[in-house]
């Protein structure tokens, strides 16, 4: 299992490393050999990854990272070949056809998801709960969002989830997915608080159902998850 972290030098804020560490741990606990590759913005994106991760970033780094990934082409090729791609916040917005630049002006995105993002009226900051697309078989999401983006979904993607509490995409949905590309506004980090989502990505990459983890290996993660779910008054 090859995990590729895209541009930690530009796209790493809000504990994005956590998503990588959780995928690594949950794969290893199942006996899968794991290799982690961190690709900086002056390096080529390898084509042979199984799961690609993109994190959050400030406005300017987001613009720079988009430009470089477009010029590099490696991520597009890997996704075409069926790799899994998981992107958070700024990384999620970049996957679309358009996102808001540093001064709010529309800029072209990577075109890997049929979404387009712009800047909203106010910043969405706080705990978020959302119920996942039943087709994905993942329990309710818990996370922390912190963004001013508003994302519109096109016809070729489905919402990742329906917002219970919080802002998400801004229209009652949260995140988007299509094929093996999945994006979300959730920090927390998302895969730490939602081990089911981490396992979905691992299952896609492995191409088969994964054995369950021994209960003691998950106990703390599930306690944290329960605490966070209970901490937010569901509306």
């Amino acid at each position: 299992m090859r995990l590729v972290w895209i541009y930690p030098d530009l796209l790493s804020t809000y504990g994005d490393r956590g998503n990588l560490l959780v995928l690594e741990r949950r794969a290893r606990l199942r006996g899968l050999p794991v290799e982690v590759v961190e690709v900086n913005s002056d390096q080529r994106v390898p084509l042979d990854g199984d799961i690609y991760l993109m994190g959050g970033g400030e406005d300017l780094p987001q613009v720079l990272a988009t430009r470089r990934l477009q010029a590099d082409g490696g991520l597009h090729e890997a996704v075409r070949q069926g790799a899994v791609l998981f992107a958070v916040c700024a990384g999620y917005q970049m996957l679309g056809t358009e996102f808001g630049g540093a001064d709010g002006q529309p800029l072209p995105g990577l075109g890997l998801l049929d979404i387009s993002s712009g800047r909203g009226e106010r910043r969405g900051v706080g705990e978020i709960l959302a119920d996942v697309d039943p087709a994905l078989g993942v329990p309710r999401l818990t996370g922390f969002e912190n963004h001013q983006g508003v994302t519109r979904l096109g016809g070729d993607v489905k919402p990742l989830a329906r917002v219970v509490t919080g802002v998400g995409n801004g229209d009652g949905t949260e995140g988007a997915h299509s094929g093996r590309v999945l994006g979300t506004y959730l920090h927390g980090p998302a895969l730490v608080r939602n081990p089911g989502l981490a396992d979905l990505l691992l299952t896609w990459a492995a191409g088969q159902q994964l054995p369950p983890l021994p209960p003691q290996a998950e106990e703390l993660a599930l306690r944290l998850r329960d605490e966070r779910l209970a901490a937010v008054p569901a509306q």
Partner: peptide, 8 residues
Amino acid sequence: RDTSWLWD
């Protein structure tokens, strides 16, 4: 209020 930084 966001504890995500603990992962950094």
